[in-house]
Design a protein around this nucleic acid. Structure first.
Lengths: 187, 187
DNA sequence: CATTACCTACCAAGTGACAGATAGGGCTTG
DNA sequence: CAAGCCCTATCTGTCACTTGGTAGGTAATG
């Protein structure tokens, strides 16, 4: 099979968690989406916590791959910085969904330990990439690039959250423009 | 009684929703916190949706009062802008909680209509206050103050979300400092 | 070749815990 | 007595998770 059940479960769980969070994941809905029975999911994932951790891990792996691909095709770091918000924009385009790890950051208190770890890694991956690109672009003094990277990550995540609550993708674009106008992102 | 059950329920629901969201609210826990039985909550709120809406409404009312009080005691608008992030900081101080409406913004798809409305009003109240203060401080051209207000609100909410997921209040402070350094907030 | 063993993938049926919500009764206070 | 407040008991539904299986494929053994 080109697409195994395990992959289908991960894909369905990603879609669901981006709209309803970790607490919104449930085995019946997931199984229905995949076309199997709920009990069968336990053949692939021993528990909901393991499934959640696998989904979050896959999520940051995919994001890291996207970012690296962007850097590979456009070696111009300023161009990459300008395109960074598009990663978050695409979730909004896709049914007003949001970053899985932003949602899980809100649910943090109720997350199994293994899931918490992956959620933090997502932030780490984003900050590391931004920091590298900021250094290359020399938009801030080196040494301040990690601080600025964190600020950009947090601000873009906040913009996504606000735009989602209005189901208004143009609000996201306007917020990013404001960040540029204010000097947080390169114009 | 100086503190009625209704007020106690609202207070408990606020605390719980700030840590676990709307989906994390449940009548049994709430009743335990207040010292009554779950069924008794229905005497004060006809349904969970009504309770949620009441909590969210109370939340933006309290925030609006805080902001207006700040403006009243310090008529200096730049000082007010510098202190704005403290409103969000206090939630983190209070048991690593977050803004109730940021959490509910994430849960947006699953919110009853009445709750959605109050969540949006919270954002409106913040943006309106920021816009007013920005105009008074003349930190941006008038006409751009509402755009900048939205950007500040979104960025501060994002900073709170990121800091919460690390249980690190100093990360929040660092992010706000970075926003100032970048020029999003007045230094 | 045939038997035995084991594996992956799935499912039917059910467990106990917990969710929101309801019905109807009792106590207290003005 | 009537209204406000809270109770017990219960209903219905959903949750994660378990048990005990079936069907089909692979592979080693005699």
């Amino acid at each position: 099979m080109s697409s195994s059940s395990k992959e289908s479960i991960l894909a369905a769980a990603k879609r669901t968690a981006q709209a309803h969070g970790y607490s919104g994941l449930n085995f019946r809905d997931l199984a229905d989406q995949v076309g199997i029975k709920a009990a069968s999911i336990y053949h692939h994932f021993p528990s909901k916590a393991d499934l959640g951790a696998a989904v979050a891990r896959r999520y940051w792996e995919d994001t890291a791959a996207q970012l690296d691909a962007m850097l590979a095709e456009t070696s111009n770091p300023v161009r990459c910085l300008r395109r960074y918000p598009d990663v978050f924009r695409r979730s909004l385009e896709n049914g007003n969904r949001m970053c899985l790890c932003s949602f899980m950051a809100a649910e943090y208190d109720d997350l199994p330990e293994a899931v918490k770890k992956e959620v933090q890694t997502f932030a780490d991956v984003n900050v590391a990439w931004l920091s590298k690109v900021l250094s290359a672009a020399a938009v801030v003094n080196s040494g301040e690039s990690e601080q600025r990277a964190r600020a950009i990550f947090a601000a873009v995540a906040g913009a996504q959250l606000m735009a989602r609550s209005r189901s208004d993708i143009s609000l996201f674009d306007a917020l990013i423009d404001s960040y540029r106008a204010a000097g947080l992102l390169p114009a």
